[in-house]
Design a binder for these strands. Structure first.
Lengths: 137, 137
DNA sequence: TTAATAATAGTAACGATTACCAATATTAAT
DNA sequence: ATTAATATTGGTAATCGTTACTATTATTAA
């Protein structure tokens, strides 16, 4: 009845590669990477394993607005900033977010607060340079 | 060469209905609503107009993680809280978000900060009650 | 009116993700 | 090692939200 997870070669390689990357790849980016070592792996397998690994807390799933899901093999506490232009997500080492008057703000809503996400959105140096280069006037 | 927008019946009804709703509907929820008044309207038209209206600043597009895009006809400054269980988004009247040590946090990143989003995630009273009702042990 | 052209309805296409299923590989027990 | 139980796989089809396409229609300014 109980299902114990099995450490397949695929799962291991996916985990290893994700931890190796300092970026926060999408499933298909990681898929391309992993194919270097396991050419016959399926994209579905990558998705399935990322889901499992995130469920068991071995990796983080970054569910940011926009489009694709991204994944993070680094579990140490840190923040992220997302480039509004190219979509990349980078780490920001820093203190945990301060909680403030959030409680009072939410007092009247009847909601039970689960999480308070602070999302930094900006333009990465590369895109910034590119934008400036393309300026007409 | 220049394209001036035209206030079609469809656009008007979409705008009116969105403003009437205190919820933050998805495109297809609004589509169902609008069909009560314009039975032959197309879903594509709803998407197109929502995009246009958001682009011109007449409505807000709520691009939260998870799944569908949601829209808000209320432009007065307010925050949102999203139910992690049913996905609904509700208003929180309150002060604008405080900026804090964000600048210093971002100092080393090289990013140009565009926006700092605070997202409140919780469980709405209805889902909370339902969860408690379903508790086994 | 008329001419110029946004905008429409309807439908096909798209991209990210999930579901399906027969075949395979891992694990625990013999 | 051998086995039995079953989690996992590869491959592909299906799903879902959204966008693109296109011929037709409706709005606007002249």
């Amino acid at each position: 009845m109980e299902s114990r997870p099995r450490m397949t070669k695929q799962r291991q390689v996916i985990l290893e590669e994700l931890r190796m990357m300092r970026s926060h790849p999408t499933a298909d980016e990681l898929y391309e990477r992993v194919r270097g070592r396991l050419p016959r792996i399926s994209l579905g397998t990558v998705y399935r394993n990322l889901e499992k690994l995130a469920g068991s807390g071995m990796i983080r799933k970054l569910d940011y607005p926009g489009s694709q899901m991204r994944f993070d093999g680094d579990l140490h506490g840190h923040q992220h900033i997302r480039c509004i232009s190219c979509g990349r997500i980078e780490d920001i080492d820093g203190a945990p977010e301060p909680t403030r008057c959030d409680r009072e703000l939410l007092a009247g809503s009847g909601y039970r607060l689960v999480e308070r996400r602070v999302e930094y959105v900006g333009i990465c140096p590369e895109c910034d340079a590119m934008e400036k280069g393309n300026q007409k006037s």
